[in-house]
Nucleic acid binder design. Structure first.
Length: 156
DNA sequence: GCCAACGTTGGC
DNA sequence: GCCAACGTTGGC
């Protein structure tokens, strides 16, 4: 099975890489994806062993802060069934779950953020939807080339 | 806090 | 099935 690469966004005020790092097994379910395209990526294409950049959005310095490994492939997001959850969706049912989540485990937390600004300056990454205007998808595929390019930016 | 871009909803 | 209205995302 070919390993794939991803980018997963989270608002650090809700769930940051430090939250993940503080957990006993540094493993957590990635709940709350409520966008069909993002869900489809998770449900249909994400496999155990895939790796993803952890991205902080909607914060002072938006950017990539580390790497997680997918340790469990998609299963129903039960937060959608829980009325008290901010992720509750009355249209999702146990028999017919509308939303899915995966489990991620922290692989590496970067010493510094690779900021969105820096990513935008790298012409090799110009095709990434992330750096393009108006992109709002919270789960994005990353090509192997883009993955390598971004990792190289760490060493500078 | 502002607002552009986008996705979803619902009336018709 | 169209599309206006609305809600959300997320950079700045």
């Amino acid at each position: 099975m070919q390993q794939k690469f991803w980018l997963m966004k989270s608002e650090p005020s809700t769930f940051s890489i430090d939250h993940l790092a503080a957990l006993p097994h540094q493993t957590e379910h990635w709940e709350g994806v409520r966008n069909y395209q993002a869900r489809n990526f998770m449900r249909d294409e994400m496999k155990v062993g895939d790796e993803a950049f952890f991205y902080h959005s909607n914060c002072d310095t938006p950017g990539i802060v580390g790497i997680v490994t997918i340790v469990k492939s998609a299963y129903p997001d039960h937060f959608a069934l829980k009325k008290s959850s901010p992720y509750y969706d009355p249209k999702s049912t146990t028999e017919n779950p509308r939303w899915y989540m995966v489990d991620v485990k922290l692989k590496q937390k970067f010493d510094t953020v690779i900021s969105l600004r820096t990513l935008k300056e790298n012409t090799a990454l110009a095709k990434m939807p992330l750096v393009q205007k108006g992109n709002r998808l919270s789960i994005l595929p990353v090509t192997a080339n883009e993955w390598r390019t971004i990792l190289k930016m760490l060493k500078k």
